[in-house]
Design a protein around this nucleic acid. Structure first.
Length: 626
RNA sequence: GCUCCUGUAGUAUAACUUGGAUAGAACGUGGGCUUGCGGAGCCUGAGAUCCGGGUUCAAAUCCCGGCAGGAGCGCCA
């Protein structure tokens, strides 16, 4: 769905190209020279600067010439050259009409772009170990993943939301050992309880060789198919994942499919994957001194090897150790062969949860079940913290070596920075996450929201709670997502509980105001956006708001291409600010003329729709009163 | 040692990928508004690109060299 803003930019590009060729010049580097202007018209073009050198004329001369040859552009009233720039002024009336019509078609949860039409993408997040509750670091992962998935949805991709569960790691073995041997009775939320066991056991391992040996033995037993320990391990992990999903649902985060490490092992994905690599002649069992007995992949065939690789000996990477155990990268290669359909019908699936709160079923890989068509994508996005960049790169290079550049290019690593507590890292081992779980954060934020909700509406208690929860989620999601992914976050309660300024609650407040205006007007929402007198909403404050509304598609496409949800938070803050300014500068319901009121109400509705749509991208409902 | 990431007002940040006109918003701060179509508001002032070179008509953005913080470079996950 083309946005009015997008249409104008395209129109301008065509007109400028036309003018340049009419002048007998060659157009070079037009792209990225057309964009929003601050204070010099509405949209400006700087192509004259690029042409200056080649034409041996001054930018001013060129811009003047282009401006004089420009043909008419849809929704553009005039164009004038100014010091080398060509500035375009929108025709406010027709642009407003187009924007309101466009806003009428914006629906939360519906695609606003066909950028990814027909393309399937799998997005993996948050993949928390199944032995502890989500802490605020996991939360950042989950929020990023959910937002990116929503954004891809809105761009027309077919999105598969996948969560990888590593139920065979050391962490799980430690928790399980505690579960079996410490004699504590599970109480409270299971993931939290299991996390506490984990902290106790990790501590004990440092002090007690016997415990360490016990955990080591347990680790190998849970990896062996059919043992009591492997069954119990999966059972306990499933119980933990169920509890973690309790948290996930509270945050409005859902998935389509869980993939278990134990199933990757059970379905022999690794053997199949290694077979593919061996057949392609890029990996083999080594017999040199260095890697004797290991199964090793050789990356020498890759055309452009990155510099970071020089740490590897001979550009080789061990996939299977001499003791027969696979490395992390090997498992990841196998897993991505499934994602991209190189190992078809690798798993069977069964139902993990019949009905998530969003109404959809959550499936899981499992021993017994039926084949389903998960995986088989052209693009895979992995939300993993920045520390994993090196293995992620090897993963991609392995597909390059395999001659599958398409797959290597299709793997995208969204590397995000860590969340730390003033100077302290959140590494699970030390248990420093205790007191900083996602559950606790939400609880505290809801408390604050509850105390701030106004009393004017006689809300029922359940409605009051619902609104408080949404406000709290708005606050949390905004604070996490408005920071660019690669930056670190230093967590503090003051930071997390921000309800002012460029915060989620502030933006919700603006939406609530707009909703109330529409409700109080008793206008017919269905017809409001059709045919208002747009000359009546052409003032500067109205127009600034209209320009922003007209860019929803462009913003979501930008956020998608760059995998940066903070593009959306920025946009939402701008929208909210522009609405606030409009609201304070002109009366709506108290407008003097009936037609004026109608036109302004249409603008209010257009704002509300674009706001609702944009909040939806962050996984947030818009609220009508607060 | 090598590689990568980060460095923007007092604080925490946006813009860097794709160079473009006056570096955008927020909190805090100085001054002002106020029974409002919802004050979780509005108006207004002061305040920033780590340092040094280079490329360019134009540099927060690109290149080189520093400085500071962090991470990565295993038959660890």
């Amino acid at each position: 769905m083309d946005s009015p803003y997008g249409i104008v930019v395209k129109g301008i590009a065509a007109a400028v190209t036309g003018a340049i060729s009419e002048l007998g010049w060659k157009e070079t580097g037009l792209s990225n020279t057309i964009g929003a202007s601050k204070g010099f018209g509405d949209i400006s073009c700087s192509v004259a600067f690029k042409l200056a050198k080649e034409l041996k004329k001054s930018p001013k001369e060129i811009a003047d010439a282009i401006a004089s040859k420009l043909g008419p552009v849809e929704m553009v009233a005039k164009a004038e050259a100014d010091g080398g720039y060509v500035n375009f002024y929108l025709d406010r009336k027709s642009f407003a009409a187009a924007t309101l019509g466009y806003a009428a078609r914006l629906e939360a949860g519906k695609a606003a772009s066909d950028l990814g039409k027909g393309l399937k993408v799998i997005i993996e997040y948050p993949s928390v170990n199944p032995n502890k509750p989500w802490h605020i670091g996991h939360l950042r992962n989950a929020l990023l993943g959910d937002a990116v998935a929503n954004i891809y949805d809105a761009c027309g991709y077919e999105v598969e939301r996948e969560d990888f569960i590593n139920d065979l790691g050391l962490q799980v073995a430690e928790s399980l050992w505690g579960y079996m041997n410490l004699g504590d009775k599970p109480e409270g939320k299971f993931d939290t309880w299991l996390g506490e066991e984990y902290v106790k056991v990790s501590k004990a391992i440092g002090e007690n060789a016997e415990t360490k040996a016990g955990v080591g033995k347990l680790l190998s037993l849970i990896e062996q198919d059919g043992t009591y320990e492997s069954k119990l391990g999966r059972e306990v992990s499933e119980k933990c994942v169920m509890a973690q999903y309790d948290t996930s649902f509270k945050y409005g985060i859902y998935h389509d499919v869980l993939v278990w490490e134990s199933d990757v092992l059970g379905y022999k994905l690794l053997e199949k994957a290694m077979g593919i690599l061996e057949k392609a002649n890029i990996a083999k069992k080594a017999d040199d001194q260095e890697y004797n007995g290991c199964f090793v992949i050789n990356l020498n065939e890759v055309k452009e090897l990155p510099k970071e690789l020089q740490g590897l000996k001979e550009n080789s990477k061990v996939l299977i150790r001499s003791d027969g155990n696979p490395t992390y990268v090997a498992k990841d290669i196998a897993f991505h062969m499934w994602k991209f359909g190189l190992i078809p019908s690798a798993f069977k699936y069964s139902v993990f949860l019949e009905r998530q709160p969003n109404g959809k079923t959550l499936y899981t890989t499992s021993k017994d079940g039926r084949p389903m068509d998960f995986g088989g994508v052209k693009k895979a996005i992995n939300i993993i913290d920045v520390k994993q960049s090196f293995p992620q790169m090897i993963l991609k290079l392995s597909f390059n070596a395999l001659g599958r550049d398409d797959i290597a290019d299709g793997i995208e690593h969204l590397a995000y920075g860590r969340v730390e507590l003033e100077g302290e890292s959140l590494a699970g081992r030390k248990g420093t996450w205790e007191g900083y779980t996602a559950d606790l954060l939400l609880e505290e934020t809801v408390k604050k929201a509850l105390s701030l909700i106004g009393t004017r509406f006689n809300l029922t208690e359940s409605e009051h709670n619902r609104i408080a929860r949404i406000i709290a989620l708005s606050a949390i999601k905004f604070e996490f997502l408005k920071i660019a992914p690669e930056k670190w976050i230093t967590f503090s309660w003051k930071w997390a509980l921000n309800f002012d300024g460029d915060s989620g609650p502030y933006c919700q407040y603006m939406h609530a105001r707009a909703s109330r205006l529409i409700e109080d007007s008793r206008a017919d929402v269905g017809s409001l956006l059709i045919g208002p007198d747009c000359t009546l909403i052409s003032g500067d404050n109205e127009f600034r708001l209209l320009k922003l509304i007209s860019q929803a598609t462009d913003m979501v496409e930008k956020a998608c291409k760059e995998m940066r949800p903070n593009v959306i938070t920025d946009y939402i803050v701008d929208l909210a600010g522009a609405f606030g300014k409009f609201y304070d500068s002109v009366p709506v319901l108290k407008a003097k003329v009936e037609d004026e009121k109608k036109a302004r109400l249409a603008l209010v509705l257009g704002f509300a729709k674009s706001m609702k749509f944009s909040l939806g991208l962050l996984g947030l409902e818009a609220i009508d009163r607060m």
